[in-house]
Amino acid sequence: MSEDIAAQYRIEAEPYYRAVGSEVELFRAAHARRMPVMLKGPTGCGKTRFVEHMAYTLGRPLITVACNEDMTASDLVGRYLLDREGTKWHDGPLTVAARIGAICYLDEVVEARQDTVVVIHPLTDHRRVLPLDKKGELLHAHDDFQLVISYNPGYQSLMKDLKQSTKQRFGALSFDYPDAGVEAEIIARETGCDLKVAEKLVQIAHRARNLRGHGLDEGISTRLLVYAGQMIAEGIDPAHACQMTLVTPLTDDPDMRETLEAAVATFFTS
């Protein structure tokens, strides 16, 4: 039965990921020891794609949870629900992952309430157990289970950060946007657009990233550059594609939009 469940979480096609350092080797070694891993980096820099790539490479099922402020411990662990046959226990995604030996990826974990996050603590030390208090069960994690979390440390306020008691249960990998040449290669590979066009998109992104903290909360992510490249590859005018994917989503401030539009006009004219 567990193999049937695991099958639906296996990644069938290899996700493209371009390594920019030793992150693949480090994660592989951490997985061999089932070490919990924290991925730290800005929005859209490739953290989720990296986890998908590693799950495929390691042949492990991947269960991803998009964390949010309304998520409760029961959403992660499970709860009793009523159906036509009466009251029945339903495992949450964290419990399913621990049972079947999947990689459980908690995306943007800092968005969850701190009283929710603490339920992962017994899984992230030598115990590797998950207490299911409402069910009266102490679940010992499968030998292949691994917990991975991600968050963007530059975007969090002092009131919304991980506790040290949580941080120090994880090994950590830092991610950032790749160097210009590598990022252009990624965009061209992902979208099918010309490399010269991809290089121009990266230059626009670098100008926007320099504005972070000076009118922008976040710079243009690699993800948004891929969107722009995809639109251009579909035959959309580059200036219009950039307006849709690089300018309008990023800010509503008229002055900042004008600044970004000027950066686009430097490389593309409509």
Rank of each mutant, 00 (worst) to 15 (best):
D144H: 05
L132K: 00
Q156T: 15
P36Y: 04
A184Y: 03
S174V: 12
Q164P: 14
G192T: 01
D144C: 00
Y105D: 02
I236C: 12
S2F: 14
P178Q: 01
E3I: 12
M71L: 14
E25V: 04
K47F: 11
G44D: 12
V96T: 12
L81I: 15
A239N: 00
F27G: 09
Y151W: 03
R79E: 09
G171Y: 14
R99Q: 03
E137W: 06
I63Q: 02
I236D: 11
D75E: 09
K200I: 02
A98Q: 00
M71S: 06
H142Q: 00
V37L: 09
C193M: 08
D176L: 03
T95K: 02
A180F: 05
R18N: 10
V37G: 03
P131H: 05
L58H: 04
I103C: 02
L250Y: 05
R209E: 00
A205W: 04
R28A: 15
Q203H: 13
M54Q: 11
A239T: 05
I149G: 03
P93I: 05
L162W: 02
M71T: 04
D70F: 10
H214L: 13
D91F: 07
T166S: 12
K167D: 06
T116K: 01
D194W: 00
R223M: 00
E25L: 09
V202C: 03
L201C: 08
R28F: 11
M231V: 13
A141E: 05
M1W: 15
G219Q: 07
V77T: 11
D176M: 05
G215N: 06
D143V: 14
S165N: 07
Q230N: 14
N210E: 14
H31Y: 15
T248M: 13
L139Y: 03
T251F: 07
A19M: 10
T245A: 09
D253P: 08
L26V: 11
R79T: 14
V118P: 07
V65P: 06
K47A: 03
D252H: 14
A112E: 01
S150C: 07
G213R: 06
L130Q: 03
T124K: 00
Y9C: 04
A98D: 02
E137D: 13
H126M: 08
Y56R: 10
M244S: 13
V182W: 00
H53I: 10
P178S: 01
A262W: 10
